[in-house]
Every structure is written in C-alpha cells, then in structure tokens.
Design a protein around this nucleic acid. Sequence first.
DNA 1: CATGCAGTTTGCGCCAGGGCAAACTCGGGA
DNA 2: TCCCGAGTTTGCCCTGGCGCAAACTGCATG
Lengths: 242, 242
Amino acid sequence: MSSQPARKPQFRLDESLLTDLPPFSRLDRRQIREILDLAVSRRHDAGSAIFDEGAQAERFYLLLDGHVRVVRITETGEQVIALHIPPGQLLGIAPAIGRETYPATAVAATEAITLGWPVRLWPDFVCDYDGFATETYKTVGKRIGEMNTRIMELATQQVEQRIANSILRLINQSGRKTDEGIEIAFPITRQDLSELTGTTLHTVSRLLSAWEKQGLVKSARRKIVVRDAHALMLLSGAQPRH
Amino acid sequence: MSSQPARKPQFRLDESLLTDLPPFSRLDRRQIREILDLAVSRRHDAGSAIFDEGAQAERFYLLLDGHVRVVRITETGEQVIALHIPPGQLLGIAPAIGRETYPATAVAATEAITLGWPVRLWPDFVCDYDGFATETYKTVGKRIGEMNTRIMELATQQVEQRIANSILRLINQSGRKTDEGIEIAFPITRQDLSELTGTTLHTVSRLLSAWEKQGLVKSARRKIVVRDAHALMLLSGAQPRH
DNA sequence: CATGCAGTTTGCGCCAGGGCAAACTCGGGA
DNA sequence: TCCCGAGTTTGCCCTGGCGCAAACTGCATG
C-alpha cells in the first residue's frame, strides 16, 4: 500500500511524454528536455497517498498515467472526494494558488506514475515556459468550475440526481468504450461514489441495483458500465436542450 | 434596483484607497496613481448585479466599499450563494483563471462601490506590479479553500451545523462588534442563509427562532447578531481544541 | 394614514434517505 | 483448493427537514 519511490538515477524519460499535454504543448524539444531532466518520476501503488493534506508543499506533480482521487477528511473522520484527476493533468499545484501546504490529500485510485518537480522551480516554469502559466490557470479555472457545480448539486439536488450527475461526469472525464457501454476507466466502489455525492454506500447500492434492473447501467465490484447515458442524463435533472 | 454607472470624468480618486490593500501594498505612489487613472469607479444599488454569469468578462473589479454576494442559478431557477466578498477584495477575476466569461453572478448585498479595469490590462498588472499576481493567487487559493469547506459541510453535516458554520464564517469575515454581540455587517435574509447552506428559509427561520429563545443569537429583519459565538461553535460540530 | 409588499414565523403531515444489522459474493493469497 | 476479507446487497425502522399553507410584522411609499 505504500508508494515506491523509484527516484533518479532513472531511465531517460522520452520527450514524447510531454509534447501533447497542454501546459507544455507550446514548448520546443530543448525546453521539454530541460523540464524532463529536472523531474523525478515515481510510481504509486493503488491506494497510496501521493501527498497529504496540510503537509508542506515540496513538489508539484504531473500525472503521467493512472487516476488520482483528491480527498479531504472531516474532523469526524468522514472522507469527501473533492476531485478526480485523469492522466495528463497537473496536481498538487499549491504554489499556483499561493499556498505553502497542500489543501487536500491525493490518493492513487489505480497504480499511478507521476513526474514531480520541487516547488522552488514553479516561478521559473511560469516565467520561462510559454503557455505554461496560461494553461495551468485554465486548469485551476476548470477545477473551480467543477467545485462550484458540486456545491450547486449538493445544495439543490436529490441524491438520485447527484449520483447520476457524478457518474456522467466520470464517464465524460475518464470514460472508456466497451461493447457493453461506456465504462469508468478506474476502479470505483459504492463507498467512493457515496463520498463523491455526500450520501451513504447503502443508498448508492440501492440506486445502482434499481438502475441495473432497468438496464441503465451494469455494475460489478469496483466497476460501473453505463449502458444508457441518455436515460441517466434525464434522471440527472439536466434540462433537455429544447 | 439597477446600477448607476458614474463613469469618468470623475473625481480624482485618492491614492490612500489602495495603499493598504494586499494586492497593491508593495507598490509606490506613482504606480498606484497609474492604476487609479486607468480605473473606472462605479456605484451599485443594493440588489443590483455587478456582472452576470456567462457574460463576456470585460472588466475585473476591486470592491472598495459594500458587500457582494456571488451567486449561481440552477436550471430549475434556484439560487445558490457561492461566496461572500467583503470590501477590499478583488472580484470578477475571470482572467486570473483563464476564463473569458464570468463563472457566476455578482450581486451587491449593500450599496457598493467598485473600481473596474478592462481585462486586457490584466497581463500588464500581473507583470508590471510587484506582488499583485502573488496576492491575487492567494485570494484565489483562499476562495478554493472556502469552496472546499462548503463541499465538505454540505456532504457530511446536518442542517443545524451547516447554518451555525455559515454564520460563524460570516461574522469572522464581516463581523461588527455591537453592545448586543457581534453583528453581520450587511443585510442578510433567512432566504440568503438558506441559499448559503442548501436548505429552505423555513428551516432557517425555525432554527434561528430556537437559538433566539436560548439566547444564542438575536435576529431581526435582514439582521443577525450573535450573542454567544462559543455556543454556536459547539453546535457547529467543530472539535473543541482538546 | 392607509396600503402593500418583503420578510418572517409557525403548524402539520409526509417521505427520502440514513442507521443498523445481517447475509451474500467474489477474487486473491496461502 | 480453501479461506478470508473487501466490497456489496437488502430489509426494516425511524427521523430530519422539506413542502404546503396560512398568518403575522414592519418598513416604505404614495
């Protein structure tokens, strides 16, 4: 369950890892090389923490492969999932928002590979690399938007709608087509879904069972496949576009 | 109810308006003068919108005086209050997070005075004025933190705790000492409080009545005075520091 | 001074969904 | 192969808080 620090010296990272990712897409080969040479790559077992809420922010990361859950824990010990991060995105970008500690815990949902850089390089990145700042702040903006939407949903919607919405968002962000339908690309439990929607695993289970009977979804252990996204969308309370 | 654009030509704004505010505190007199000369000041009636969700972000603002509510409206017409902004803070900083439209509507809770600058000046501000970017992103970070807390509360706490927490946060951010206790410095209705906590005005009213009977608060039309913040804190579910 | 409206209070009934408890199922490790 | 534990399902009961309805209170306006 603990993370395996496969630090430098390491295999030389290939430039193609970064060239297609928005924060780096405007950079030339030489710059990408520079960035890679400063990075430390690391593998994280599924379930292990990449960094912890409240800890001194020493590094910021890029998620090369795998999925990450960003989680907060209440004073009473309950978990709330704040965000899901798909591969290719930055995480732990505390310095971007003027923080010296991480505001939440990041947990690998699957085995995950990250690149990490010391936070002291952040100002250099922002200043030296064209488009890096812009793209990063776009990410921040998107996450703010997501959080906002979560707040609205929690404040106004029924449990059924919230769960439908969460699942739709997950398949949008990390869906994978299969012959059965669209599958969420990483393992997710009823418990996870309940922490995402502010309800209990029991209620989630009951709802998924009901939906399965109606043929909307097909679910198994830690797995959900959506067979009828359109019907889910109706349940989610979204206004059909007229 | 509509806003009164008191545009340029205008009275010359005094430099002391900005010198103490974090985003500008590291600047010298000449720079502050520059910034003020680029600004348009405007007065907003209580209840009027400063900008609207989804609108093209043409300006970013500084709230000189008054209080502002940042709200979103659901597809079903319900309002949710995302944030309260006290005087002295920036608002409408869409460009900071890579957005071209405002993600929410800003409504003046009291009569309010703003300074506004065209968004095209944003990059200049960030680059020319020492400390501006840093302080701005700290603000963004704080707001993200607040949103995060809201999500946790909505997901895990009972209505009573959420309302207690919201009131505590409001008096923290915009409290004003009176001989009766600490008063929320701007008018706030039961409805507002319910939109802040994801409940109904009825439930809020019932709770406030109960608290009033116990001497915790004293409330009137659009006004709340906290007489026993400590007791409220116990209700809010915060762990007493051991 | 009358009138109206915005904001508030309160009562009553109901039900979505949480709490609790128990049983089941699957997958992986010894 | 069997066993164990994590994840899931389901039933039953109970209640927090919402929906609905109606009445009340002041402030503001003509």
